[in-house]
């Protein structure tokens, strides 16, 4: 089988296994949509002030949950699945076959990207149908897609990198959530950061990629200012994640 065909086959098998695993499908797909409904039901009539712009909270959450969905599909899911595969010995077995490592792991990344795109589409459709979300088009759409691609790729790379810090699959949920949940709050994904947010919170949040990625998603849905700096910061984190992953990735369980 030639390389592209093998790659496509591999993505197909990842996809098959993915949908048959109730936990991964549930957490990735149901969570963002569930949160969207819960948050908008609880807080939907409030207003969010972004600089001079005022948007309904329900619209805000369409952007926020898109960002959350991408982080879950690419970072959380990749980190958890790869750790489980490592501890089950699947990765070691793969290493003993002729399939190139980059091809095997690359198929997983591509699958994560596809899931991220699907989730953003779902969230958008949901948001447009029920919460008056602005659907990006034209240049806004192009910039939005660049941010989406860079973000999804970077979070997947970081997902691989974090596996090096996860001692075993029992610890995976704790490590992954501890690394991502505080940042989701600090970056205004779960609770909007109003204009009165303490400066130190913004200052900390801006170091990390989620803040910048969330702003990029907002620019698509809310018509806020799009900054290439956000794309750059997310991309730098992605490259750093890739370098760490290449250096410290383990194909065998850490004993």
């Amino acid at each position: 089988m030639n390389r592209p065909a093998l790659f496509a086959t591999q993505v197909r098998y990842v996809n098959k296994a993915y949908w048959r695993n109730p936990a991964s499908a549930f957490f990735t797909f149901a969570f963002p949509l569930m949160f969207l409904v819960i948050f908008t039901s609880l807080l939907g009539n409030g207003k969010v002030h972004i600089g001079a712009l005022v948007v309904k909270q329900s619209t805000y959450y369409v952007a926020a949950m898109s960002a959350f969905a991408v982080v879950t599909a690419c970072y959380t899911n990749v980190a958890m699945n790869v750790t489980f595969q490592r501890d089950l010995g699947v990765l070691k077995r793969i290493r003993g076959t002729p399939i190139p490592s980059w091809l095997y792991l690359g198929a997983r990344v591509v699958h994560a990207l596809l899931m991220a795109v699907l989730l953003v589409l779902l969230t958008t459709a949901f948001g447009a149908a029920f919460y008056h979300a602005h659907v990006p088009s034209g240049t806004t759409l192009l910039r939005f897609l660049v941010m989406l691609a860079v973000g999804a790729g970077s979070f997947a790379a970081l997902g691989f990198a974090i596996t090096a810090a996860i001692p075993n699959s029992d610890a995976a949920p704790a490590v992954v959530n501890a690394s991502v949940l505080p940042l989701l709050f600090l970056s205004g994904v779960f609770i909007p950061l109003g204009n009165g947010t303490p400066a130190w919170i913004r200052w900390i949040a801006k170091i990390f990629p989620i803040w910048h990625f969330a702003r990029g998603m907002e620019s698509g849905f809310l018509g806020t200012h799009f900054s290439w700096n956000d794309v750059l910061v997310v991309g730098i984190w992605g490259v750093a994640g890739l370098v760490l992953a290449i250096r410290h990735f383990s194909w065998e369980p850490r004993v």
Binding site: Q10, Y13, K16, L88, G89, V90, K92, R93, G96, T97
Partner: peptide, 27 residues
Amino acid sequence: IGIVLQSTGVDRYLTVAETIAMYSAYY
């Protein structure tokens, strides 16, 4: 070569036939 390691897993959600087909594609 073919390797049977002491403890290895496979993707638990694929079927037996799918698993063999997936690995066959590597060779």
